[in-house]
Structures are given as C-alpha cells and as structure tokens.
Design a protein around this nucleic acid. Structure first.
Length: 279
DNA sequence: GGTTCTCTGCCGC
DNA sequence: GCGGCAGAGAACC
C-alpha cells in the first residue's frame, strides 16, 4: 500500500524504540522517542501501545525495575546502584524502590540476609503446609500437595535468609497454625511479620477485617482502602499474599458472586469457604 | 503546591 | 494511517 506504513514496518519501528529505551541511561521522553521513529508523539504513543500492549512509559518503568534489581545485586552499595540505575535523586530512588521491589533497596540487596526464618512442614486438612516465622512473627504460610515444592518455594523467596528447622516453641506455633487452618474459627492470636509494600499491607489489613463466615468482593476491598478504582491492583495484592488462611484472601470473591482463582488452588479455596459455611 | 509529562478520546485530513 | 488538540490524572521537583 503506497504511502502507508506496513504492519511489519510498525513492528520494527517500535522494536527500535524499545532498544532505545533499554540503551538509554535516563528514560527518553515521549517526544524524543516519537521523533526518533519519525512520528508525532500522539500517534507514536498509540502505535507503541498497540504493538507492545503497554505504554512507552510503562515499558521504560518495567525496564528500569529490571536494571534496578540487577544493579542492586551487582553493585557494592545501594548508593552506587542508585547512581548506575539512573535516578535523578536519591529520594526518587527510595520512593520508587518499594513499588518496584516490594521492599526497600537495602532489604532487597540483602535478599533476606540477616533474617533468620524458622520453618516447619506438616500436614493439614488441605494438604501439606509450610509455616515460617522470623523473630517478629509468622512471615509465610503456604500450601501444596508436595512438601518438597513448599521448601523450594521458601528457599526461592528468602534466598539469603538463614533457614532453620523449628524448635520446641516453633512446634507449638505450628500445631496452633494447623489447628487454625483445620478449624478457622474466630480469631488467631499469634504475631505476624507481614512483609510487603505499603499498598499490599493496606490490602491485607483490609482482608483481615472480613469477618469469619463472610465474603467481600475486590471492589469492596478497593473501596475500603480508599482506592475504589484500583480493583486490579487489589486483586494482585491478594494474589501476593504470603500468609494463607490467616490473611483471609480466600474470602474475596468476584462481584458476580462466583469464586475467583486462588493461589493455592481453587479446590482449597472452596474447602475453606465450606468450612466457614459460606458455600 | 505548582509544573511538567503521560495518556486517552475525539476529530479532521 | 496519521497529526493535533484538549482535558484529566500522574509524576516530578
């Protein structure tokens, strides 16, 4: 088609823009990217989104996150990593890090270093269960059919932490947790060490206010934390919950009343809801 | 808290 | 297919 740009030409134009974003030390602005592609800013923006599925800004942000993670792992200090990643100021860096990494840059660099996590694997009515705790409280509760998989998952999540088997005190906690999972009655009184971003913590706190035997929708939770339009972010935060059952993300259902997915399997979610007399 | 930038919708060519 | 403008909202300083 003369005078028109073909689809493949579009794809290579956008691919070139992606490479430019990746190569640049500082995020190139929309105007620069558009000029480089020989298009107007507005049209370039539309085209970029059509081809990649994300906006140029979102693409640049995602790439910056990858770089931030790499630099934090390879650089000696957080300060040098910050300089290399290309943030304009340290405050911007520390501002962006929790969103991008789920923790402060220092904590990410340590990768759980310095943290000691006691853990145990047992069996409950929902299959194999892993419970882990720092000296502050329970930081992880996961479930699976395969106990080995639970341990591998724990090692992945806290790769620099010292993982040790539970002691006598921990055994007691473990028994209490299993009893709670099997009969999730009213309250749970062991301390929790909830690790996540500020946003995730707000969502999880909101989940904890859903009473036993009741459900809420993602929209309800979004409204509760004062972000009525952030339903997708809320759903993501529910999916990132590390402490199953105790933080009752299983009580969240779709607006139409149907049961949505569950990180530890829909069958487990249904079983939990049955235990609470909801279904 | 003001300024700049991003993003989207809409319209015209 | 492409450019441009307006307005809302987010990001930045």
């Amino acid at each position: 088609m003369p005078g028109r740009t073909s689809t493949s030409a579009h794809a290579s134009l956008i691919a070139k823009a992606c490479r430019l974003i990746e190569r640049s030390a500082h995020e190139p602005d929309l105007e620069t990217l558009a000029r480089d592609a020989g298009l107007s800013a507005s049209h370039f923006h539309r085209l970029f989104k059509e081809v990649t599925g994300v906006t140029p800004k979102a693409y640049a942000t995602a790439h910056k996150t990858i770089r931030m993670k790499k630099d934090l792992q390879t650089e000696k200090t957080v300060t040098t990593a910050m300089a290399k990643t290309g943030f304009s100021s340290s405050s911007r860096f520390y501002d962006a890090a929790p969103k991008a990494l789920g923790m402060t840059p220092g904590a990410y660099k340590k990768g759980g270093k310095g943290q000691t996590i006691r853990f145990g694997v047992g069996e409950c009515s929902l299959g194999s269960i892993l419970v882990g705790a720092t000296d502050k409280g329970i930081c992880i509760l996961t479930m699976s059919d395969d106990p080995q998989e639970l341990i591998e998952d724990l090692q992945r999540r806290f790769k620099n932490a010292t993982l040790i088997g539970g002691d006598k005190q921990f055994e007691k906690w473990m028994a209490k947790v299993i009893a709670f999972v099997d009969r999730p009655t009213k309250s749970f009184d062991l301390p929790l060490d909830i690790q996540g971003t500020a946003f995730q913590k707000r969502v999880w706190e909101a989940l904890c206010t859903i009473p036993f035997g009741k459900t809420a929708t993602y929209a309800d939770i979004a409204k509760k934390i004062g972000k009525p339009t952030s339903m997708r972010a809320v759903a993501n935060a529910c999916g990132s919950n590390n402490i199953a059952v105790i933080i009752p993300c299983h009580r969240v259902i779709r607006t139409d009343g149907t049961i949505s997915g569950y990180r530890w399997g829909v069958e487990r979610k249904k079983t939990l809801l049955k235990k609470e007399g909801i279904i």
